[in-house]
Design a protein around this nucleic acid. Structure first.
Lengths: 143, 143
DNA sequence: GTCATATCAGATATTATTTTCCGATTATAA
DNA sequence: TTATAATCGGAAAATAATATCTGATATGAC
């Protein structure tokens, strides 16, 4: 099981982080990204299509085509990727699964979890890819 | 998708919270708990078996049998239920899905997520069912 | 213009999770 | 002792998530 995001969303964040440490508009195709992230290329391909639809990355068809960041790393936040793939459900759904949990009818951990959930949102909404660059470089061997 | 726990685990927490506001050793059978939590009784039944194996609740077979809290609400923490059903994977797995993420080779959000994860653990480890009783009563109509 | 190489779109297959079913066993009440 | 009502355990079915395949379309190189 994944922690908070779907596999597709995890992979999307990994891929965008990977692209963010490369020279601007440098194009990588699906097989290359697949190899880098050690994930099946068909799955990577599908995920990259979704990211392209939501305008986070751009694509170029045909020979020497591939994918590239649509904006500068300083203008992309992790939360955008989460929104594009998984949506905001994680930030709305009751952590204990009570169907009618809300501020008016809170579950026993509604407030405690609310704080944690807000912090998580803050984490994803605050840092841009640019700010994560150094840490990303340390994680992924860059070229 | 669920937020952090499996469906079975969410249900387990709900069920134990439900039992915690009842008189000690008062027995409820699977159909009754199923009705209360509005979840299929077979699924409730399976989950209650797992909780019984791990000693959080007790069971009584035969006519007028059912399930009851094995210990006092002041001696049961939410984290025990999570451990019994889902295990500690949520607290170990990389939130971005990097297979080799750890303190030596951290992902870009390893530290930030680490704090949030620790807070979550703290939330589940700190409060006992007894302390949640009031909030639970407000959520679940008691008898 | 033709060929090679890439994305794109939709369908399909596979796997994992969740849910349901069924028979066996056990305990209680009458 | 017999009928009943419950848990227990394993298997099966349904559903959801993940992964793969296939053909179509677009693009650049030659």
């Amino acid at each position: 099981m994944t922690v908070l995001f779907s596999k597709k969303c995890e992979l999307a964040i990994q891929a965008v982080l990977f692209l963010s440490i490369k020279k601007e508009k440098l194009i990588y195709n699906a097989p290359a990204i697949s190899k880098e992230l050690k994930v099946p290329k068909e799955f990577v391909s599908k995920m990259l299509q979704t990211l392209t639809e939501s305008g986070i990355i751009g694509s170029k068809k045909g020979k020497n085509g591939g994918f590239y960041l649509a904006r500068k790393p300083s203008q992309i936040k992790l939360i955008e990727i989460v929104e594009a793939i998984d949506g905001y459900d994680v930030f709305k759904t009751c952590v204990l699964g009570f169907p009618d949990c809300g501020d008016e009818n809170p579950c026993p951990v509604h407030d405690s979890w609310g704080n944690i959930r807000d912090e998580t949102y803050h984490m994803l909404n605050n840092e841009t890819l640019e700010q994560l660059k150094e840490k990303t470089l340390r994680k992924i061997i860059s070229s």
